[in-house]
Amino acid sequence: MKFHEFGDKTNPHIMLIHGGGNAWWNYLRQARILSERYHVILPTLDGHGEEHTIPYVSTEATVDKLMDYINENCGGRIFALSGVSLGGQIVIELLSRKPDIVEKAIIDGSICYPTPYMAKFCVTTFKLTHKFLFSEKACRKQLALMPRMLPEKMLYPKELQDYYIREMPLLPRETMVSVYHTYMYYNLKESLKDTRAQVMYWYGEKEMKCVKKSAQLFKSFVPNCEIYEAKGYNHGYLALYLPEEWLEIACKFFHN
């Protein structure tokens, strides 16, 4: 696992965790703005991007490594955590490990209960389509099609397009198979109820029902959790495509 850092290390620490199949640079635009006030940490999860040669094991194994980093570099606790999709589930697991590990946490579009039928469907589909979706040629075509599919404000700038073309074709098929086998079988842990963090659980209005159900299930463990529905948006849109809107909502939460 590799860590990209932005800002003064003496400032409060914020860690932003990308989703499955993506990489640290998904949060690059947010990190640059936040670094004016915070020390921002963007991990690259095992099996992804520049860490594609290291096998991805599970949510729990990933959190073992993140806990080591936080203990060694941040004095055992940080100011804020945020993660999208798989990254959000990793945030949940971190909250379960230590009640005071963080003051503020954002979970964005994540699943936190087993969905075995969906896992089997996703694994089968990914195995069949991997080479057609993640070759360099396919990635270039996806970027070329984005202006037809998304509004202009949601398009990647050239810097992120370059990262996309360079790192997405590196994604091993085995990484996403492991992600689906672990992400979609995750169970909330009783220790989550002890967290002292202020938490927001985000999801898009157009998300799958399992994500919305996950938000309600999480709230049953953490009653003071605030649920936020991003009207008109689908999975991960704020984190991946709309950094200014993400910052507006997150910073208000962080500063309160």
Score class of each variant (00 low, 15 high):
Phe121Leu: 13
Glu50Met: 07
Lys104Cys: 08
Ala230Val: 15
Ala61Pro: 02
Asp68Glu: 14
Ile54Gln: 13
His255Ala: 03
Leu240Thr: 05
Glu51Lys: 14
Val123Ser: 03
Ser135Trp: 09
Ile249Asp: 10
Glu72Asp: 15
Ala215Phe: 06
Gly21Phe: 00
Ser214Thr: 08
Leu42Gly: 04
Val177Trp: 11
Ser191Arg: 09
Met67Ala: 14
Gln30Arg: 04
Met184Gln: 05
Gly87Ala: 07
Lys153Pro: 03
Val84His: 05
Leu160Ala: 00
Phe126Ala: 01
Pro169Gln: 04
Val84Ile: 12
Ser191Ala: 03
Pro12Thr: 01
Trp24Gln: 01
Leu238Cys: 06
Gly47Ser: 11
Tyr164Ile: 02
Gly76Leu: 03
Ile106Phe: 09
Val91Lys: 12
Leu155Gly: 02
His52Phe: 14
Arg37Ala: 09
Tyr163Phe: 05
Glu50Phe: 04
Gly204Phe: 05
Gly88Val: 10
Lys231Gln: 14
Asp64His: 13
Gly75Asp: 09
Tyr201Leu: 07
Val91Trp: 13
Pro114Thr: 07
Glu103Tyr: 11
Leu16Met: 13
His181Phe: 00
Glu93Ser: 06
Ile41Thr: 11
Lys158Tyr: 07
Phe253Tyr: 07
Ser178Gln: 08
Met118Arg: 15
Leu192Met: 05
Leu170His: 12
Thr44Arg: 05
